[in-house]
Design a protein around this nucleic acid. Structure first.
Lengths: 152, 152
DNA sequence: ACTTAGACTGAGACTGAGTCCCATTGCAAG
DNA sequence: CTTGCAATGGGACTCAGTCTCAGTCTAAGT
């Protein structure tokens, strides 16, 4: 993710994605590239409906399959919002650890980050509670439910 | 929710639920009472599958309908775990503010509470960030993803 | 006790996001 | 060029969840 100025960050990201896919004997095809492009340029997590709209030539079955492949390669993360529709964003090791504001009216998702100190306190508290319950935590998600500016 | 010892806390809860339903011209029928009983005695959030198993005589359509009614009366909260199945728990004003450990292997949900001070810090941070984004927060949920003791 | 309004129920039909299947195509290595 | 396997496309399929509608129950009025 770090890099020279010669070609943009986006190209670097594509290179990284390709490497990761190759590692599990998968190819970085046009459809997968288009999905990654869409997710990155959208800024916010994208839904299947977004993909269908913005990539009308990509069949649904291919979109779902590609998303599953990208997810199992650890490149994309599926998030479940307040509505019934799954949304997808880049995995955290391609971006930075962050959380979400979820609009209960329109389903929109906005990325936010917490102050580093607070984030550390939360992680420590989670580790402690989980160990008491015999639970092995992989990560956490903090979702804020509410109404976005456009819907208010 | 507070009360004499004459009849248990559970009876009090039922009284409260009935009052709340009456307030919106709804009745506290046997089916609804059975669902509330199940949710309370289960301790953890229950799925539709749990309800179907434990209340075999309650038709699916009635279970869903009752859950929707109880949810819109603010008595029950729907939570979306890691799997595709919705789960239900008592609304927070009938219990206390808490969060969840979600097992990604079996879908089990375990309730946890954070230290009051930390919880306050998180809430304040959320208020601040949300206001910058023009977002009006109603509440938040912190889910810890991982593997439970039984699945490890 | 009768009536009545409307809340509630049960059973099944229906919806649609997401999955599966399979014949075909594309890519990379020997 | 051929052989193996990843990937595609599109249509059929699954099934959690929703909707419909005719019939039932309950509370309140008379």
């Amino acid at each position: 993710m770090a890099n020279t100025e010669a070609h943009g960050l986006l190209d670097d990201l594509h290179d990284l994605v390709e490497t990761r896919l190759r590692r599990v004997d998968q190819r970085y095809t046009a459809g997968r590239r288009a999905i990654i492009d869409l997710i990155v340029t959208a800024g916010n997590p994208v839904s299947i409906a977004d993909i269908a709209t913005r990539l009308p030539d990509l069949p649904r079955s291919s979109a779902y399959r590609n998303l599953v492949d990208l997810e199992s390669a650890g490149l994309v993360r599926r998030i479940v919002g307040h509505d019934e529709f799954a949304r997808f964003e880049l995995a955290e090791d391609l971006t930075e650890h962050h959380h979400h504001l979820l609009c209960v009216a329109c389903g929109k998702v906005i990325d936010i980050t917490l102050a580093a100190g607070l984030e550390r306190n939360v992680s420590e508290a989670i580790e402690e509670i989980a160990s008491v319950e015999g639970f092995r935590p992989h990560g956490h998600r903090l979702d804020v439910l509410g109404v976005c500016g456009a819907c208010a």
